[in-house]
Design a binder for these strands. Sequence first.
DNA 1: TACCATTTTGTAATCTTTACAAATTTGTTT
DNA 2: AAACAAATTTGTAAAGATTACAAAATGGTA
Lengths: 142, 142
Amino acid sequence: MVSRKENVEKYLVEHGIKPSFQRISIMDYLRTHPTHPSVETIYNDLSPRIPTLSKTTVYNTLKLFVEHGAALMLTIDEKTTHFDGDLSSHAHFFCLGCGQIYDIEMDASVRERASESDLFTITETHLYYKGYCRKCCEKSDK
Amino acid sequence: MVSRKENVEKYLVEHGIKPSFQRISIMDYLRTHPTHPSVETIYNDLSPRIPTLSKTTVYNTLKLFVEHGAALMLTIDEKTTHFDGDLSSHAHFFCLGCGQIYDIEMDASVRERASESDLFTITETHLYYKGYCRKCCEKSDK
DNA sequence: TACCATTTTGTAATCTTTACAAATTTGTTT
DNA sequence: AAACAAATTTGTAAAGATTACAAAATGGTA
C-alpha cells in the first residue's frame, strides 16, 4: 500500500525534482485541488499546516514545477497567475463574473494541427474561453 | 477619399466609443502595428508625437477598447498584457526565447465546438502555443 | 460667456512577482 | 557524532505593472 504522498514523491522524482517536504506538500495540494489555485490561495491554505512556509517558496516551487513540466501555468486571468497540476489535454473556461476557471474538453486535433507547422517548435498548447458560467448568467442575465 | 484616421474614427463609433484624439491615436497605432504591443510600447511610441499623453490614458483607453469589443487583450505573456487590434479569428504563438508573439491560423472549428456547450456563455476564444521560434531555435538549438 | 459632462493627466497607492542574502536543512565525509 | 559543503527555505526589500483618485483640461450646449 503506497500513500498519496509517496505517489507525489515519485511523481516529482520522475520529473527530475528533488522531493523536499515543501515541494511534496505543494504538489500534493495541486493534485488534490484541481481548482487552478493561485500562489496566494496555495499559501493561505498550506500556511496553517506548515507555519514556517514562505510565500517566496511557493513562488519558487511553482516556477520549478513549470520548468520541469510537472505543472502548468495558466495566464487566463490577467490579475493573477493560476496553476494546474493536471497535465492531461484539456481546455479552460474563465468566468468573467466570478473569476472561476473550469476545465472543459479539448479536441486532440487542436494540438496536432499546430505541430504540423515547422516554423515553430511548440512546447505547450493553451486553449481557453471567456464568458459567463451558468450561475453568473442567472444572476445578472448576461 | 477617406483618410486612415477617419476610418479609425468610424470604427470606434461603430463600437460605441466616443472618438477623442487620444483614442483615435491609440486605435490607429494598434491597427497599424499588428505586433501585439504592450501599454509600455504604445506609450513610448506615441509619447513623442503626443507629448501630453499619460500612461494612465493608455491603460484606460485600452480597457475601454476591450470592454467594447474593439480590441483584444492577450495574457499569453505573464509579464505584461499585450493588445491586439485584429479581431479576426486567429491563434497566437509566444516565443519563450525572444518573447515575441506571432499570429498563426486558427481552424474555425475551435470556436464552433465550444459554443455547442450550454453550460457557459462564451464571449471569447483564445488559442495559443508556446515554444521557440525559428530564430531562437537556431541560436540555442532548442 | 457660463455651465455641465466627459476625458485626460499626474501622483500616489496597491498588488504581484522577483532579487537577494541570511538561516536552515540535507547529505556526505571524516 | 562532528564537520563540512550543497541545496533549500525564508524574510525582507525592491521592482514592475496596474489602478485609484482628484485636479486639470477639453468639448459641447444653453
